[in-house]
C-alpha cells in the first residue's frame, strides 16, 4: 500500500459516501444518473468476484463490502425509495446501458491478460468503470444545473482515478514485474473523460460562479 493508493481509495470512499449521504438526508436524487449508478454496481460486482475466494487483507475486504453495499444502496434508493424516486429525472437520464456494456464486454473478450472467466470479468469491470460516468456527464450537460454536492461527487470520482495513476507509476518503479498495462490504459482513458469536467469545475471554483457545463 502506498500513499497514492490510500488517498485514491479514501477519495473514492468519500465520493460514494457523499452521494449516499446526500440522497439519504435530503431524500432527493436530483441531478444523479441512475444509469451511472447501476453501471457502478455492475463494475463492483464483476470486479469483486474474488471477494470470498481470495483473502488479501481486512482493509481490502472491508472496502469491497463498502463499495458493493453503497453502490447497491444508491440504486435501491433511486429505484425503490418512495420519496427519492420521485426526484429521479428518467426523461433526461436516457443513456442506453447496452451502448456501454456491450462494447466493454466485447473488448474484454478480445483484450485481456488471461482467458478465464474471473479474468475476463475483471477486465470487463475495468473497461466499464472507465466509461460508466458518461450517463452522469450527459445528464449534467442536459440539466445544466449542477448542485455542488453532485459536482463534488463527480470531482472526487475523477480525482480517485487520477490518484490511482500516480499509484501505478509509483508501483511500476518500486515493484519489479508490476505490469498491468490494461489497467493503466483503462485508468488513463477514465481520467481523461473527467478532464473537461475538471476544467469547468476549476473555472467555476476559481471565478466563484455556479458550475455550468457547455451544452
Amino acid at each position: 500500500m502506498n500513499i497514492f493508493r490510500l488517498a485514491g481509495d479514501m477519495t473514492h470512499l468519500v465520493s460514494v459516501l457523499v452521494l449516499l449521504l446526500k440522497i439519504h438526508t435530503i431524500k432527493s436524487c436530483a441531478g444523479i444518473s441512475l444509469k451511472t449508478q447501476e453501471l457502478y454496481a455492475l463494475v463492483f460486482t464483476t470486479r469483486y468476484l474474488d471477494l470470498f475466494t481470495d483473502y488479501i487483507s481486512l482493509y481490502n475486504t472491508v472496502m469491497k463490502l463498502i463499495f458493493l453495499g453503497s453502490s447497491f444502496s444508491i440504486v435501491w434508493y433511486i429505484r425503490r425509495h418512495k420519496i427519492v424516486r420521485r426526484s429521479y429525472d428518467k426523461d433526461q437520464d436516457t443513456f442506453r446501458h447496452y451502448f456501454i456494456v456491450l462494447p466493454c464486454l466485447v473488448l474484454a473478450l478480445l483484450i485481456h491478460h488471461k482467458f478465464t472467466f474471473k479474468e475476463v470479468m475483471w477486465t470487463f469491470s475495468l473497461y466499464l468503470e472507465a466509461v460508466a460516468i458518461l450517463p452522469q456527464l450527459v445528464l449534467l450537460q442536459r440539466t445544466r444545473n449542477i448542485d455542488n454536492l453532485t459536482g463534488q461527487y463527480v470531482f472526487l470520482l475523477g480525482a480517485y482515478r487520477a490518484l490511482y495513476i500516480l499509484n501505478w507509476i509509483y508501483r511500476h518503479y518500486t515493484e519489479p514485474h508490476y505490469v498491468h498495462w490494461i489497467t493503466w490504459i483503462a485508468g488513463i482513458v477514465q481520467t481523461l473523460l473527467y478532464a473537461d469536467f475538471f476544467y469547468y469545475y476549476f473555472q467555476s471554483w476559481k471565478n466563484n460562479v455556479k458550475l455550468q457545463l457547455p451544452a
Partner: peptide, 10 residues
Amino acid sequence: EEDEDIKDEL
C-alpha cells in the same frame, strides 16, 4: 507458471 497475479487493488 507465473503465480496468479494477486489483484490487491480495489
